[in-house]
Design a protein around this nucleic acid. Structure first.
Lengths: 219, 219
DNA sequence: TCCGGGGTCAACCTTTTGATTGACCCGCAC
DNA sequence: GTGCGGGTCAATCAAAAGGTTGACCCCGGA
């Protein structure tokens, strides 16, 4: 039987080397290619498909130093004709990342501190078409069901993240390519969902519920 | 000549495997042991010294899921009789732990996205007794010397903490038993010291410099 | 097909925040 | 005792943020 062909996407050479070494310990699996950034990853997927030697699964980090980020790359890959499953493998377990990644079409969400067997199993399960979630992620999602989720939209979360960096509405508008009026509209919605009435309280609430992460904060 | 003996300390199996594979590519260097957390690292150093087979250098991550963190572990190791050099190898360059790590006696500070040769060179330099800093870290430290610490007063920090919970000036005033005018005065001072011009940015700056801690944030 | 939600924008008005100036009290170091 | 920094307060004006209403577009599901 042919080996499972994996594409590694991570901006850290150390992590790529680690995954490569880790996967090498298992039978029937091999690293087809590596990419240090989203755009390169997309091109690799396309290139190998063109060559008739497609990757079976993509292991994708979310945080990328520069270049296209993991969520964007995932959604691009998922828009291909015959997209491979994309397994997110990242360091953090915040809502912002998870929701965006799942919406972008990711087949799973694993944390980097997972033991080798778990990562291997996740890869196999992803190829089988299953959705795999790290236990901590699963628990987090369960908790969210019991605790009526605020249900912020991706756009709102994106805005919230800019908000937390201390930008005024005007700058947020520029960065998001929308008008200040729209920023205000989003803010009103966010305040309503979070049950607050000012930006500072919104950041506090969102941080507490792990919807966003703030500077200097550990996973 | 005897191999350089390295101790790897990182809570992520993936990263440990990566470093191991990466170092294996170089001559004259070998991984003597691994630890997933600070206390285990300290014990490994002691154990190998006792066996008369001491490690020559420690590669230490700062962020540790649970157990003793990297800074604490470093200072413990440095209190041994014949401490090996400790090279910090971490993900963030915004981390306020940089200063703490250097104070704890770290011989260097590298980022995980560094290419293999750089990491190898850093290890060699650390053993030679040199201090090695990633270019980005060096630049950051320089900036911090030029821009000395803000030196907020206790009262200002207290206010900042209330600020971070999302309270408006009026409520902060009540909780601190002062007038709203005084709250504003304090805020102006805080903004000046932190180099910002609004409350949200003040929280972001104070959080990043670990002046305050926000909800949901780990120590 | 119609409806609803997400996303966008504008006008308007109120409230809050930010910036400036000036003032007073207190304790402590010089 | 004089000066200085921390802490307190007030008045005032300008700027930003918050709240409301109403509107348009697009898309996907009932």
């Amino acid at each position: 039987m042919k080996d499972i062909r994996v594409l590694l996407v991570d901006d850290h050479p150390v992590v790529r080397a680690g995954l490569r070494a880790m996967l090498a310990a298992f039978e029937g699996i091999s690293v087809a290619a590596e990419a240090s950034e989203g755009e390169a990853a997309l091109n690799e997927v396309k290139r190998l498909q063109m060559l008739g030697d497609p990757v079976d699964v993509v292991l994708m980090d979310l945080q990328m130093g520069d270049g296209m980020d993991g969520v964007t790359a995932t959604s691009h890959i998922k828009r291909l004709e015959t997209p491979p499953p994309v397994l997110i493998l990242t360091t953090y377990d915040t809502d912002a990342d998870i929701l965006a990644a799942v919406e972008a079409g990711a087949s799973g969400y694993m944390l980097k501190d997972a033991p080798p067997e778990q990562i291997h199993q996740a890869v196999v399960a992803a190829i089988a078409g299953q959705t795999v979630l790290a236990p901590r992620i699963a628990a987090l999602l369960m908790g969210r069901i019991k605790n009526p989720a605020p249900a912020l939209t991706p756009r709102e979360i994106q805005l919230l993240e800019l908000l937390a960096t201390g930008l005024p509405n005007r700058s947020i508008a520029k960065q998001m390519f929308i008008s200040e009026a729209t920023v205000k509209t989003h803010l009103v919605h966010i305040y309503g969902k979070l049950g607050v009435d000012n930006r500072t309280a919104a950041i506090a609430a969102a941080t507490q519920r792990r919807i966003i992460r703030v500077a200097g904060q550990q996973p």
